Deep mutational scan, measured.
Amino acid sequence: EPEARKIVEKLINNGLSPEDVKRWAEKNNNPEVKKAAEEYQKR
């Protein structure tokens, strides 16, 4: 999901860690963003 990846990169560029992004995604019920954050961590 390229859109989710863009969101993850934007949040990380704004100073969030991938863990923060995953928590944000869970709080906002956004499994695509959570998955993208996990993939981002593996890179």
Rank of each mutant, 00 (worst) to 15 (best):
E1M: 14
P2L: 15
P2N: 15
P2T: 15
P2V: 15
P2H: 15
E3W: 13
E3L: 10
E3R: 10
E3C: 14
A4G: 04
A4N: 03
A4E: 02
R5E: 08
K6I: 11
K6P: 03
K6R: 14
K6L: 13
I7W: 09
I7E: 02
I7L: 12
I7G: 01
V8S: 01
V8I: 06
V8K: 01
V8E: 01
V8Y: 07
V8W: 06
E9Q: 12
E9M: 12
E9V: 09
E9R: 12
K10S: 13
K10N: 13
K10L: 14
K10A: 14
L11E: 01
L11K: 01
L11F: 11
L11N: 00
I12G: 01
I12W: 04
N14D: 14
N14W: 14
N14L: 15
G15I: 04
G15R: 03
G15W: 04
G15C: 07
G15V: 03
G15Y: 02
L16D: 02
S17M: 04
S17N: 06
S17T: 13
P18R: 03
P18D: 03
E19M: 07
E19I: 06
D20C: 10
D20L: 05
D20Q: 12
D20Y: 05
V21Q: 02
K22E: 06
K22Q: 10
K22W: 11
K22M: 15
K22N: 04
R23K: 11
R23S: 07
R23L: 12
W24D: 00
W24L: 02
W24Q: 00
W24N: 00
W24R: 00
A25L: 03
A25S: 03
A25Y: 01
E26L: 06
K27Y: 11
K27E: 14
N28D: 03
N28I: 09
N29H: 09
N29W: 04
N29M: 07
N30E: 12
N30C: 14
N30M: 15
N30Q: 14
P31K: 07
P31N: 08
P31M: 12
E32V: 07
V33K: 00
V33P: 00
V33S: 01
K34Q: 09
K34Y: 15
K35V: 07
K35I: 08
K35L: 10
K35F: 08
A36G: 02
A36C: 07
A36F: 08
A37N: 01
A37R: 02
A37P: 00
A37D: 00
E38T: 06
E38H: 05
E38Y: 06
E38G: 04
E38L: 09
E38F: 05
E39D: 09
E39L: 08
E39Q: 08
Y40G: 00
Y40E: 02
Y40P: 00
Q41D: 06
Q41M: 14
Q41P: 03
K42M: 12
R43E: 13
R43D: 09
R43S: 10
R43L: 13
R43N: 10
R43M: 13
